[in-house]
């Protein structure tokens, strides 16, 4: 009975703790805002070469459309994947966890009443929120300049809802996938090369490099079952309407399954890992 009572008291104070963590992380992030905004703007530069490359490809092929895309559509696709990646990419998450395991900082989560994954998720949300607030200016600027590439204009409200949902799920999926990868460090101390392989696969299979529809059918069918596509391709495809509206929810259901699976994997790995872990020294 005592535990129930303390749990109830605990929820309020736990929320307060989480709020404090979020607030501190936000303040920390806003320090370098100028540098941040400029860096974001620079990130659009490679799109320029993509524009010329794809126009050259379309001009030579003599086709109006390649698979579902017009030349403008491909450019719009690349721009949309930048938004997807703004949600799903987790710079420093995997290496951060590995570093904490290696140098023993992980101990603090064992003695303090804070959950490692919860804490990391909150700092990551703060990081992302900050990023969106600052990146909104360069993103709006570039998207406004390039609005001509979006030939179909804004999609319907229901599609937009699905789009935002897929972005948020992409964020969570990206977080738990990369956290699981970082937790491997309980078993292998060095995960840099593993992370490199992950990033490589991610770049190719998520559709960050090119629209996945361009792949031959057998490859596309296989890649559609993997979780990577939800990190870049899927939200963009929903927005552009390359996925039929009635099939959107099927994909989202698969995404939810992957998300559940990775939440469980991360949890189990953390529990097992902590039991393996031995912290020495003071």
């Amino acid at each position: 009975m005592a535990t129930v009572a303390s749990n109830q008291r605990g929820t309020g104070s736990r929320l307060k703790t989480w709020w404090t963590i979020l607030k501190i992380s936000l303040e920390e992030r806003f320090v370098y805002r100028g540098d941040f905004a400029l860096g974001t703007l620079m990130r659009f530069l490679p799109i320029i070469t993509q524009v010329f490359l794809w126009y050259a490809i379309f001009a030579a092929s003599g086709k109006e459309k390649i698979e579902a895309y017009t030349a403008n559509g491909v450019v719009a696709y690349y721009m949309l994947t930048m938004i997807s990646r703004a949600f799903s990419s987790m710079p420093g998450l995997c290496s951060g966890i590995a570093l904490q395991v290696r140098d023993g900082e992980i101990k603090k989560y064992l003695i303090q009443p804070i959950d490692l994954l919860g804490f990391l998720l909150l700092t990551r949300i703060a990081h992302k929120l900050c990023y969106y607030v600052i990146a909104l200016i360069p993103f709006t600027f570039v998207f406004f300049l390039c609005r001509g590439f979006f030939e179909n204009g804004w999609p319907e409200a229901s599609v937009l809802c699905a789009y935002f949902l897929s972005l948020i799920m992409g964020f969570l999926l990206g977080f738990f996938m990369e956290a699981s990868l970082g937790l491997v460090s309980f078993w292998f101390l060095e995960v840099t090369s593993l992370a490199f392989v992950y990033n490589l696969l991610n770049f190719f299979l998520s559709g960050h490099m090119f629209p996945l529809d361009l792949l031959p059918d057998w490859a596309a069918q296989f890649i559609n079952l993997l979780p990577f596509q939800y990190l870049a391709y899927y939200p963009a495809a929903i927005f552009q309407g390359t996925i039929e509206p009635n099939q959107v929810w099927q994909g989202m259901a698969l995404e939810a399954c992957w998300l559940m699976a990775f939440i469980m994997i991360a949890r189990i790995m953390l529990n097992r890992g902590i039991h393996r872990y031995s912290g020495f020294g003071g």
Partner: peptide, 21 residues
């Protein structure tokens, strides 16, 4: 190799990069 893979896919849809280049 991945980069080469990308261009192999591109060349499934076109014969050359840019018209008459």
């Amino acid at each position: 190799v991945m980069n080469i893979g990308f261009y192999l896919i591109v060349f499934q849809y076109t014969d050359s990069i840019g018209k008459e280049t």
